[in-house]
Amino acid sequence: MAIDADSRGVFAIAPTPFHPDGAVDSASLRRLIDFYASAGVTGLTVLGQMGEAPKLAAEESLAIVRTVLERTALPVVVGVTAPGFGTMRTLAHEVMTMGAAGVMVAPPNTLRTDDQIIAYYTQAAEALGPDVPICLQDYPLSFSVQISPRVISQIVETVPSIVMLKHEDWPGLEKITAIREREAAGQRRLSILCGNGGLFLDFELERGADGAMTGYCFPELLVDMVRLTSSGRRDEAHDLFDAHLPLIRYEQQPGTGLAVRKYVMQRRGILDSAAQRRPGRELSKWERDEVDFLLGRLARRDTRARVPNP
């Protein structure tokens, strides 16, 4: 079930559940994986930024991947970004041996030129080997690396094992169009799954994205958007998206989004705790009240937002 250039749908980015003392909460993790399957997602992504991967020890990372793969038959993409290719290669080969569908690699923030970006991904693919499918994470707001459509085209033509783009440029609608136009002119196809919490998913899908790879606390909405858009039900898709937009916006606050996401998932009975591993933060009473207010308003349009009182 390896990812490839035709991968479509919703690959939900899973947060890592923790107990209040910082230990990994394996019971909540298994419940979370079951929830994603019931929500109809196409696949999962673990050990991403929102999975707090940099806070995990190597053995914890492998244990999390093992738990996820044992719990689901869905394809699983694993974040393997690391400072050096040796560490990246070791983790990638471990998770691929376990049964992962591919790996995700983000650029280091030291890259400054187009040539450096192309060289980095060429060398990363060589280190991982030709049999490891790669998802290129393009998130300039976080990594401070600007990857233009022209550079993406050069990478695609140079590195056959890069089959997917996690598109998180902002604004980025024109980038999707530019990539698809290059493909229409003969460039090899690339699967495009979009992040940013789904904030622009309504138009990203219309521009040619294949789906979402993000962790919005209502993945059912992401699944619905892909389904409705692909079937040509544009107004229905936008109406549903607009109902969720205030919560999506609130969840996208830098430095706060993961706390919001975990709090809502706790409210939904998926996670036992909204805890992050330190350094991290928890929502203030004001913030919790505001999220509860948004959930109440959303529930008028989408009954899936009806959650028990805190």
Rank of each mutant, 00 (worst) to 15 (best):
Ile117His: 01
Gln253Lys: 01
Asp115Gln: 12
Leu222Phe: 09
Gly215Glu: 02
Arg30Gln: 15
Ala14Thr: 14
Val65His: 11
Ala185Asn: 13
Gly9Arg: 04
Tyr263Thr: 00
Lys166Gly: 03
Asp34Arg: 15
Asp210Lys: 11
Asp25Tyr: 05
Leu228Ser: 11
Ala299Thr: 05
Thr81Val: 02
Asp115Tyr: 04
Ser273Tyr: 13
Gly232Asp: 09
Arg278Leu: 13
Ile64Leu: 15
Leu294Asp: 05
Ser284Phe: 01
Arg180Thr: 01
Ser161Trp: 00
Arg233Thr: 00
Val156Cys: 11
Gly255His: 05
Pro171Ile: 11
Asn309Gln: 15
Ala299Leu: 10
Phe218Thr: 04
Ser142His: 11
Val76Gln: 06
Ser284Lys: 06
His238Asn: 09
Lys175Asp: 12
Ile3Cys: 08
Arg301Pro: 02
Gly22Lys: 08
Pro246Ala: 02
Asp242Phe: 04
Trp286Ala: 14
Val78Gln: 03
Tyr216Phe: 15
Ser28Thr: 03
Gly99Trp: 03
Thr229Asn: 14
Tyr120Thr: 09
Leu298Ser: 11
Asp131Asn: 14
Gly43Ala: 08
Glu206Gln: 15
Gly129Pro: 07
Gly84Met: 03
Leu111Ser: 11
Ala275Arg: 03
Leu295Tyr: 11
Ser148Pro: 01
Ser26Arg: 13
Ala37Arg: 15
Glu251Ile: 04
Thr122Tyr: 02
Gly269Phe: 04
Ala209Arg: 05
Ala119Val: 05
Arg112Tyr: 10
Arg71His: 10
Ala237Ile: 00
Asp235Ser: 12
His19Ala: 09
Ile192Ser: 00
Val76Met: 02
Met225Phe: 02
Met96Arg: 06
Thr81Ile: 02
Met1Leu: 11
Gly197Phe: 02
Val41Phe: 02
Asp169Glu: 14
Val41Gln: 04
Lys55Ile: 04
His167Trp: 07
Leu283His: 07
Glu251Phe: 04
Ala106Phe: 00
Ser61Gln: 15
Ala185Val: 03
Ser142Thr: 07
Val41Ile: 08
Leu62Ala: 13
Ser153Arg: 10
Asp6Ser: 14
Met88Gly: 13
Ala100Phe: 06
Thr81Leu: 01
Leu47Tyr: 07
Arg277His: 07
Lys285Arg: 12
Tyr139Leu: 06
Val159His: 02
Arg207Lys: 14
Pro149Trp: 05
Thr81Met: 00
Asp6Tyr: 10
Ala37His: 12
Gly86Val: 12
Lys55Ala: 13
Ile155Thr: 01
Ile117Tyr: 04
Glu60Asn: 09
Gln266Arg: 12
Gly197Cys: 06
Thr158Ala: 15
Cys194Leu: 06
Asp302His: 02
Glu183Cys: 08
His238Met: 11
Arg112Cys: 14
Lys166Glu: 05
Val105Leu: 08
Asp202Phe: 11
Lys262Asp: 01
Pro108Asn: 10
Pro108Ser: 10
His244Pro: 07
Ile64Tyr: 05
Tyr36Val: 03
Gly79Ala: 04
Arg30Trp: 03
Tyr120Val: 13
Gly232Lys: 06
Val103Gln: 10
Asp138Leu: 07
Asp235Gln: 14
Ile192Ala: 00
